[in-house]
C-alpha cells in the first residue's frame, strides 16, 4: 500500500477524519436542500412555471443532469448515514451512565441528532416512492402529465401531510445543530465567528422549515391549486 492511501486510511479511521466526512456530506445535503426548496416554491408561480422547471431538470444535459445529481446525492446520503451511525455507536459505548444524569448546556436538537436523522431517512424513502418513483398509480399518471397537478393531489392526503410535517420538524431540528456543527468540525468557529454561525444555522433551519411546510399547508388547509 502506498503512503498516500495509508494516510487516507488513518484519516478515515480517526474520530476527527470521520467527523470531517460527516460535515462535508452534511454540507452537500444542506446546499441541495436550498436548491430543492427554491425549485419547489415555483409551485406558487403556477402550473406552467413549475412544470417547465420539472421539464428543465429532466432534460438538462440531455437527461444526464438529473442522474448525476441523484448519484451524487445518494452517495453523500449513504456516506453521511454510514459514518454517523458508526460514530453514534462508538459514542454510546464510550460512556457508562451516571446514576444521576445532568445536562449543562447541550440543546435538545444536538442530543437527538441520530433520531431526527433516522426520521429524515424514513421520510426520504417515502418521499422518493411517493413523488419520484410514484408507486401510486393515480399520481403516476398525473405526474407524467403535470408534476404540478401531482403535487397538488399528493398533498390532499392528510396522512401524507402529517408525516411531512413531522419529518420537516425533525429536519429543522437536525439543521439547527447540524449547520453550526459544520463550521466547528471544519475548524471555522472562533470567539469572533461563534455568534454569526449560531444565527446563520438557526435562520437557515427556520427558512428551510417554513419554506417546505408552506406547500402542503397551502394545499391542504387553504385549498391552493384545487380551484381549477
Amino acid at each position: 500500500m502506498s503512503a498516500s492511501t495509508c494516510s487516507l486510511c488513518a484519516f478515515l479511521k480517526s474520530s476527527i477524519g470521520r467527523k470531517i466526512i460527516v460535515a462535508l456530506t452534511g454540507l452537500a445535503l444542506v446546499l441541495f436542500l436550498a436548491g430543492h426548496l427554491s425549485g419547489n416554491l415555483l409551485i406558487f408561480a403556477g402550473q406552467e412555471a413549475f412544470d417547465e422547471y420539472a421539464e428543465f431538470l429532466h432534460t438538462f444535459l440531455h437527461g444526464m443532469g438529473v442522474w448525476i445529481a441523484r448519484i451524487g446525492l445518494l452517495a453523500c446520503f449513504v456516506i453521511h448515514i454510514w459514518f454517523t451511525i458508526l460514530l453514534t455507536r462508538e459514542n454510546k459505548a464510550a460512556r457508562p451512565k451516571y446514576a444521576h444524569e445532568a445536562t449543562v448546556q447541550a440543546p435538545k436538537s444536538s442530543r437527538l441528532m441520530i433520531w431526527s436523522g433516522l426520521t429524515i431517512l424514513a421520510f426520504v424513502i417515502f418521499h422518493i416512492l411517493h413523488f419520484t418513483v410514484r408507486t401510486d398509480c393515480e399520481l403516476a399518471t398525473l405526474g407524467a402529465e403535470s408534476p404540478w397537478k401531482m403535487v397538488i393531489l399528493g398533498f390532499q392526503n392528510p396522512l401524507v401531510v402529517i408525516f411531512y410535517l413531522i419529518a420537516m420538524t425533525c429536519l429543522c431540528s437536525h439543521l439547527g445543530h447540524g449547520v453550526a456543527s459544520i463550521f466547528q468540525t471544519l475548524g471555522l468557529r472562533s470567539k469572533k465567528t461563534a455568534g454569526p454561525i449560531k444565527f446563520i444555522s438557526n435562520a437557515y433551519a427556520l427558512v428551510i422549515y417554513l419554506g417546505f411546510i408552506s406547500i402542503p399547508l397551502a394545499i391542504l388547509l387553504f385549498g391552493f391549486g384545487q380551484g381549477k
Partner: peptide, 16 residues
C-alpha cells in the same frame, strides 16, 4: 491517534 486508541468517544459539538 492515541486519543482514539484509548477509547474516548467522538465530539458532537455540544460543548458540555
Amino acid at each position: 491517534r492515541q486519543m482514539d486508541e484509548e477509547g474516548f468517544g467522538n465530539c458532537t459539538n455540544q460543548f458540555e
